[in-house]
Write a protein that binds this DNA or RNA. Structure first.
Length: 423
RNA sequence: GGAGAAUUGGCAGAGUGGUCGAAUGCGGCAGUCUUGAAAACUGUUGAGGGUCACACCUCCGGGGGUUCGAAUCCCUCAUUCUCCGCCA
């Protein structure tokens, strides 16, 4: 959520910047400013009324104490009007505040200057590419065929138990999943991220805190009996650790890593590209989250990108990095880099990580602040990224490391797996 | 799941209808003293709105109510603790 005072002071610049997202926010911003003004005017009026009635109440109290009940009763009558108008004003204020809040929820984050203009993922800018794309022998298979051939992932069994998009990993497939989780967590903690285990469900307040609500409720599994959501990403619980928190400057940087399963309804995204592991309702992911001083957050973002690169180099997977264009940028993000691994047998790139800086957008909703040098409260910056999402990494490994004799396990994972080949 | 108790500032803990945003202690910060530090002493120390700055307003777990007036009374929800039941 954008800050009101920032909108007030940079109205035109914000409208201009949001045009990059192909959203004309001008009228929305205008109505926010009108509502803001109305809110403050109403607040001032209410404050005055309350001040008057507080004053009267105090006088009544003093009169009673000094035994002047009659005079007190006379004053009581005067309060009736004040009470009436303060009730009306409170109602009015609540209405305006709610409208203002809802309008603010509809405004996405302002894209960073470096974000390229563009309408869709086709306009994303490739900024880096590394790793050799293997030349596979004849008869190379896509990962879902390999999964079947070696009996390591059973998609049909998942359908029976839960439904499409909930695969069952078996034998060496299950072991490889566990190896990847442990490897990622080890890499992240070695880089200084503090491991944390968090709930896999979140309440409504947490959903609003990181911006999934009210925007994306259709993408989350919701449990009405308990008013809880299954998490679509560890970003929500891990970042909400810092909801309503005031940090000291010396607490920066805050870094966490967490493994969680992720649940996504993926409503309406069925089609040709969802086969196998490409798009699931439940998948595993290891996330990294940072809370940073505003002056350090872009440096931190670069550090996260380098960290993810390092992992992919060790796995020896061909990958590229995209700078998302404004049209493809997430609602809450100011700048996002996507990592994609090349799926050789499918001949396409698969997104395996998304690393973003949200600047103060989430912090404003979370009320995540810190005391600066002058002792004033300021909003912190939040960032997060996948390091990494498992299924497509697994797809990449299966396809790129396949040989006629079986699938070779990347060297760095062998100690975690306890085997070096799936055959 | 049943019965009872509780929820106050960074922490501990007073406060049961009136000048209480809240005593006191600890912690934090600043100063005095000291070669330096500790101790001691003095001052200061919640968040938000509002204002050029004051004034002023809101917040004592969340929401609602009673009252001229609520941290204090009532209702409701949440959470925590104790006892019982069930259970990985």
């Amino acid at each position: 959520m954008l800050q009101l005072n920032v909108i007030r002071e940079n109205k035109d610049a914000i409208i201009e910047a949001l045009k990059k997202r192909n959203s004309d926010a001008a009228s929305l911003i205008d109505s926010v400013l009108v509502l803001d003004e109305k809110r403050r005017a109403t607040q001032t009026q209410l404050d005055k009324t309350l001040a008057d009635s507080n004053k009267l109440s105090k006088e009544i109290g003093i009169l009673y104490k000094s035994g002047k009940a009659q005079e007190a009763n006379a004053l009581k009558e005067e309060t009736a009007n004040l009470k009436e108008s303060s009730k009306d004003l409170t109602e009015e204020l609540n209405t305006i505040a709610t409208e203002l809040q809802q309008a603010l929820y509809l405004i996405p984050n302002v894209p960073h200057d470096s974000v390229p203009t563009g309408k869709s993922e086709e306009d994303n800018e490739e900024i880096f590419k590394e790793g050799d794309i293997p030349v596979l022998a004849g008869g190379a298979l896509p990962h879902w065929e390999l999964a079947k051939k070696y009996d390591i992932i059973d998609f049909e069994l998942g359908v029976k138990i839960a439904g499409a998009g909930f695969p069952v990993y078996k034998g060496k497939g299950a072991r490889l999943q566990r190896a990847l989780i442990n490897y990622f967590l080890d890499k992240n903690t070695a880089a200084g991220y503090n491991e944390i285990q968090v709930p896999h469900v979140v309440n409504e307040a947490s959903g609003y805190g990181t911006g999934q609500l009210p925007d994306k409720e259709g993408q989350m599994y919701y449990m009405p009996a308990d008013d809880l959501y299954l998490i679509p990403t560890a970003e929500i619980p891990v970042t909400n650790v810092f909801r309503d928190v005031i940090l000291n400057e010396k607490d920066f940087p805050i870094t966490h890593t967490a493994y969680t399963p992720c649940f996504r309804r993926e409503a309406g995204s069925y089609g040709a590209h969802v086969r196998g592991l490409n798009r699931l309702h439940q998948f595993d992911k290891v996330e990294i989250v940072r809370v940073e001083h505003p002056s350090k957050s872009y440096e931190a973002l670069d550090g996260m990108v380098e960290h993810v690169k390092d992992i992919l180099r060790e796995l020896k997977l061909p990958y590229r990095i995209l700078r998302l264009c404004a049209g493809d940028l997430g609602f809450t993000s100011a700048l996002t880099f996507d990592f994609e691994v090349f799926s050789t047998a499918q001949d396409r790139w698969l997104e395996i990580s998304s690393v973003s800086n949200f600047e103060t957008y989430q912090a404003n909703r979370l009320k995540l602040r810190f005391k600066d040098e002058d002792g004033k409260s300021q909003l912190a910056h939040t960032l997060n990224g996948s390091a990494l999402a498992l299924p497509r990494v697994l797809a990449g490994i299966l396809e790129n490391y396949q040989t006629p004799d079986g699938i070779i396990i990347p060297e760095v994972l062998v100690p975690y797996c306890g085997f070096d080949k799936i055959d």
